[in-house]
Design a binder for these strands. Sequence first.
RNA 1: GCCCCCGUCGUCUAGCCCGGUCUAGGACACCGCCCUUUCAAGGCGGAGAUCGCGGGUUCAAAUCCCGCCGGGGGCGCCA
Length: 498
Amino acid sequence: MAEKVRVRFAPSPTGWLHLGNARTAIFNYLFARHHGGEVVLRIEDTDRERSKKEYEEALLEDLRWLGVEWDEGPDKGGPYGPYRQSERLEIYRKYAQKLLESGHAYRCFCTPEELEAERERAKREGRPYRYSGKCRHLSPEEVERYLKEGRPYTIRFRVPDGRELVLNDLVKGEVRFNVDDFGDFVIVRSDGTPVYNFVVVVDDALMKITHVIRGEDHLSNTFKQMLIYEALGFPMPKFAHLPIILGEDRSKLSKRHGAVSVRQYRFDGYLPEALFNFLTLLGWYPKDGKEILSKEELIERFDITDVHNAPAVFNREKLYWMNGVYIREVLDLDDLTDRVLEYLRNYSEHLDAEDRKVAEKILDFPREFVREVVSKVRDSFFTLKEFPKRAKPFFVDDFEPSEEARKHLQKVGTETARKVVELFLEKVRSAETFGGEEFKKLAKEVAKELKLKPGVVFKTLRVALTGETQGVALDLLVDLIGKERTVGRLESFLARLK
RNA sequence: GCCCCCGUCGUCUAGCCCGGUCUAGGACACCGCCCUUUCAAGGCGGAGAUCGCGGGUUCAAAUCCCGCCGGGGGCGCCA
């Protein structure tokens, strides 16, 4: 690979960044960086019907959030711009003209109705549809006349007969295809806008793309593009077609399968590093089997020829687990704290009403305190979204006991519960210092004096202190909230018992 | 319908190119035990794959060859 590697990621701004596209972007990025190459971001907005400006913004934002970087693009420019296809129309027009002049393409005056009829006939006769090539042999005079009449026309590429093309795909290997299997295809629409198969070639060639890495759904189309490369005399890039991502039912991952956009995972409290890492493992695997890898480690290990060629099913469970690994093991405490705070500040609308209230409380506390809480509970939440639930006891002093908590009280008996809490409260009050260690000691004393099992005492205190029957270790909790708040909670518990 | 791609535990996959070291390895999920004031995390262990099926080549096949089946994708004036 003597020349500098240049890859591109070319999304259409028709919606939020899809997981499949995100993975394609990641693989492009990893490949380029591994080879010290460059990444180009190009917006494919030639479909004016569906393309929306706000989606383009969203796309860039999602990509940045994920951690995919690019060197040239609509936002930062570069030597081969513009990077938005809608701004390159003049260029395409020029190359279409070139193709027309060299005879590789011709004008087609067939109306949509005529084409529809052709399609119908093919279907009826049970043969695959292919454009008949009706306009292929129009005489220059006829063309002239139609043009004068102002008839709308498309420009079609003249597909040579009987050519077998061989593609050496970096992941699929050798793929052969006979171009007779498709008819002369449209490269410029009747409204003058160019079509995908044509513009990708022009753009990739002009932008000096050396490796085209994209989804497998483009495999068949690659042969059309190879024809255009030839006709225009452009050097052929290398191709790599990634297997697509499937949903649990083994059909192409789509909205039916639930959350499929990067944005949605962000709202759900996922970390970009975890998503990035996870997506990387869909169709590729590091040789040493190490699954939790930083971007740098990924760049170092990534090899496009090792990409698996069977489609992969998106396993949400494993992503969830991996996000947990990043929360409890990968990020350092300060970083994690900032992420939690940032999520609570900006995405609380995605929390349920109860958690939102907790979130507001949390934001009232000093960062230092939140940081301490995070360090105590990071082992028990898997997404940022779950933080309020796990951390609630540290922040909320007035709470309603849960169903389970009430049941526990019933089981132990109100009187016993009262005794436990009263005795404990008394001991806390008279204690000179009170923290996690003292908590354990005093609770055990209570158990001994009341002849109760330690488990019963702890659970009762948990109910009194948090209104729940499970959660963080109580010594960690009281250690942080301190004597005053502990006493306060016990008092209101007693008051509530009456 | 035609063309193309694919097929190892439920899922992600290692191994396949260079047949034996594979009684097929790892991870998620699952089950059990341990730790423990509970949940979670963690530690240890377990179950789970006749390598899609059938034939062939070979002393030997997940690995090579052929056929079949199954799944997916593409066949547009979408990208």
